[in-house]
Structures are given as C-alpha cells and as structure tokens.
C-alpha cells in the first residue's frame, strides 16, 4: 500500500509537469497520426506479398511496438535533466522506496504510451483496420508492458551515465537493430541467417504475438509474445530498481 502510494506521488508529480507543457501533449498525440499517415501508404501495397488480408491488421501491431520502443526509450533524457536539477538525490534521501521512485516515472511513460496507442488504433479504424476488440486490448496491453520495460531500461542507463552525450548514441545503437530485427515494419522472411538472429530478439516475438492476437487468434505465438513481454519487463524493472538503489547513482 505504502509502495503504491509513493509510486502515485511520484507519478502525479511527473504527470503534472508533463501536462503543463502543451507542446509535449500535442507532439505526443501527433506522433501516432504521423506514423499512420506516413508509413501507411508506403506499406499497404506490400501487404499482399506477406499474405495478409488486411494491410492494417499486419502493420498496426508493428507501429504499436515502434511507438512503444521509440517513445519510451528516450525517457532517460528526462531523468538526466532531473538528476542534474538535484531532484533524484532529494528523493533518494526520503524514506520512499527506490522502486517507487522508478515506477512512478515509468508509470507516466506507460500512460503516455497507452493514450498514444489508443489514438493510433482508433485512427487505424478510419483507414480500414479490422481486428477483434479483445485482441486490440490484449495487443495494447503487451505494447504498454514493453514500453514500460524500455522506460525502466532507459532510466537506468540515464542514471548510470548521467550524460545525454552517452545516452543518445547508446540508445540509438540499441533501438535501431531491435527495430529492424523485430520485423516491426516488414516481417523478416529472407535471408535465413537474419531470421535466425531475429529469433533471439524478444521484441520480434512480441510483435508476432500482437499481430496474431489482432486477428483474433489465441495461439502459442500470442503466449510466447506475452511471455517475452513479461520477461523483458521483469528484467528491466529489477535492473532499474538496482540502479536506483546503488549507492552512487
């Protein structure tokens, strides 16, 4: 209870600061619209080659994960700014749980991602998306879980490096291969070695899981996707908490 209360206090503070900045809110909402409007026309003609009935059912799950990865991976930049202002240290001398300090921040990223995902899916319906309601809810849930994991990871790296100059290249070198290897935009079919490499990337399974669940099926693909989303989140949360606990962080 105390932990949830402390998490909420940190979350509420982050939310208040975020909502007061209208530019941030607008950019956040425009992002999914841009994704759909720019990527959609590019990808729709290709859908047939992958044997999809509906182009948007194939691509929206990819766009969701991309939104999840990119939006949240940069959470660490905000954290470095807060660290520089002394906020992190001030919070670390309070008796509050270190996990609450991290989760309150990650919760904001998750909520932001949730809103963006809903906007993306609603807009996709206008473009012609057909998907099961339950599948969409499940798919968004997986996206948010993955996004929360990325935010934990990014915050932890931010707190360790305490420098935007380290964070930017590091996150870029992680996000780009993950983006490509996950088959976010195009499912990987060739060559074989690339497929093998992609198989060990958890986000690939998460994308496949969301894709499957969007069509309304609940098969092993979905379970594997869910499994990996939970594993990635748990790993990031544990590591993030450790970094927040670390003495010199």
């Amino acid at each position: 209870m105390l932990f949830l209360r402390q998490t909420f206090i940190v979350f509420r503070r982050q939310l208040r600061i975020a909502l007061r900045n209208p530019a941030w809110v607008i950019i956040g909402l425009v992002q999914p619209i841009l994704y759909l409007a720019l990527f959609g026309p590019l990808l729709v003609p290709l859908a047939g080659t992958f044997g999809a009935d509906n182009a948007y059912t194939l691509f929206v799950p990819g766009l969701l994960v991309q939104l999840g990865l990119f939006g949240t991976l940069f959470a660490g930049f905000g954290l470095v700014a807060e660290w520089r202002a002394g906020v992190i240290e001030a919070e670390r001398v309070t008796p509050a749980s270190r996990t609450a300090l991290l989760f309150g921040r990650v919760a904001l990223n998750a909520v932001q991602l949730l809103v963006q995902s809903i906007v993306l899916v609603l807009l996709s319906f206008l473009f012609g998306l057909q998907a099961s309601a339950g599948g969409i809810v499940f798919g968004i849930a997986l996206t948010v879980l993955l996004g929360a994991a990325c935010a934990c990871f990014s915050d932890a790296v931010g707190l360790l490096s305490k420098s935007e100059n380290v964070l930017a290249p590091l996150l870029n070198s992680v996000s780009l291969p993950v983006l490509l290897l996950s088959g976010i935009l195009l499912p990987i079919t060739q060559p074989q070695w690339l497929q093998t490499v992609a198989d060990v990337v958890p986000t690939k399974h998460i994308v496949d899981g969301i894709r499957a669940v969007f069509t309304g099926t609940f098969d092993s693909t979905v379970w594997w996707g869910s499994f990996w989303a939970v594993v990635v989140f748990a790993a990031a949360a544990i590591w993030g908490t450790r970094v927040f606990r670390r003495e010199n962080a």
Partner: peptide, 16 residues
Amino acid sequence: YVSQSGSTSPEARAGE
C-alpha cells in the same frame, strides 16, 4: 538534507 545541486525541477511549481 539540502544538497548543493538543488532539489526542484525548474518547470514544476514551487509549492507543489
């Protein structure tokens, strides 16, 4: 504890 580096976000409201 009042640290040297400050304790508030520049964009937050003081009272809050």
